[in-house]
Design a protein around this nucleic acid. Structure first.
Lengths: 154, 154
DNA sequence: ACTATCTAAGACCGTTTCGGTCGGAATTCC
DNA sequence: GGAATTCCGACCGAAACGGTCTTAGATAGT
């Protein structure tokens, strides 16, 4: 449960790939990335398209075309990627886009879970693509985030 | 995305109901709870069964039977409930039960996301059924959790 | 201008999961 | 014995997910 889709996984992997390539003299094609990670090429192609449409990637059609990061890898959060691919983050069915609960009235579960929701969002927002790339071992990664601890309001 | 199932929602609501009833002179039947929250009775019945099988509830069959919390509401975490209903918590498809990634080798996304995974787990573990019950407004709830801040290792 | 390469976009499809229902058996109380 | 209630598995429709296919449009090199 609570698992993000394979598409989001692929998207993050693709962004990581692009982050490691930058600054890229030539953009990477969907096929390049798909080959590198053994991802179904056509599927990745669609993912990259939505990522481009979301403004996280810049695309270039035609020969020698491909994709490149729209911003620096340090300025793109995992949350943005996941949101762009999988849609808005709602941990519970109660929290809809309108903020209303279809079980309105008889659902007091909503408020506490909304906080969990926000916390997860903060958690994912703190992870940046730059953290994914070149993050081989645990200690170095934790240190790079800021002391290994982040505080989350509950 | 990243949303927990309606079953888990229902389960949490049911636990909250039971928490508010305790100490209960008589256990609450599945139908009682279903009526209170307008949940499909047969569906809730199955949810309560799995919750009982997981040891979170004690059940009593027969006339005037029903369910009651197996422990105090303060000793049951939202994480346990969700895990019992929706199964183990894996934010990414990479993290399987065996801890192995089917994209083994060419998937460096895994490690950072595992930490997010653990953090969410900690987050949900910190929420207890007692927090859901009698938690009408935000301020009181936040204060009751312990200063409104919890720290999570990244 | 032609062609190879590449993105853009949408239809389509098989499988799985989810939400929910049904029916029957076992248990307990009156 | 009968009513209430848990227990358990089978079943079903709808939606989501993962993936493919096809077609069209943009670009660079020759």
């Amino acid at each position: 449960m609570l698992r993000l889709t394979k598409k989001a996984d692929y998207g993050l992997m693709a962004l990581k790939y692009l982050a490691e390539q930058s600054p890229a003299p030539v953009p990477a094609s969907a096929k390049d990335i798909a080959d590198a990670y053994h991802i179904p090429p056509q599927l990745l192609a669609k993912i990259l398209q939505t990522l481009a449409k979301a403004g996280l990637l810049v695309s270039h059609a035609g020969t020698n075309g491909g994709y490149a990061l729209a911003r620096s890898a340090a300025e793109i959060s995992a949350f943005e990627v996941i949101r762009a691919i999988d849609g808005p983050l709602f941990i519970t069915s109660c929290i809809t886009i309108h903020g209303t609960c279809d079980l309105a009235g008889h659902c007091t579960i909503k408020e506490p879970l909304r906080k969990v929701n926000d916390s997860i969002k903060d958690l994912l927002s703190a992870i940046r693509i730059a953290d994914l790339a070149e993050a081989p071992d645990t200690e170095h990664y934790a240190a790079s985030v800021g002391g290994g601890l982040i505080s989350i309001a509950v």
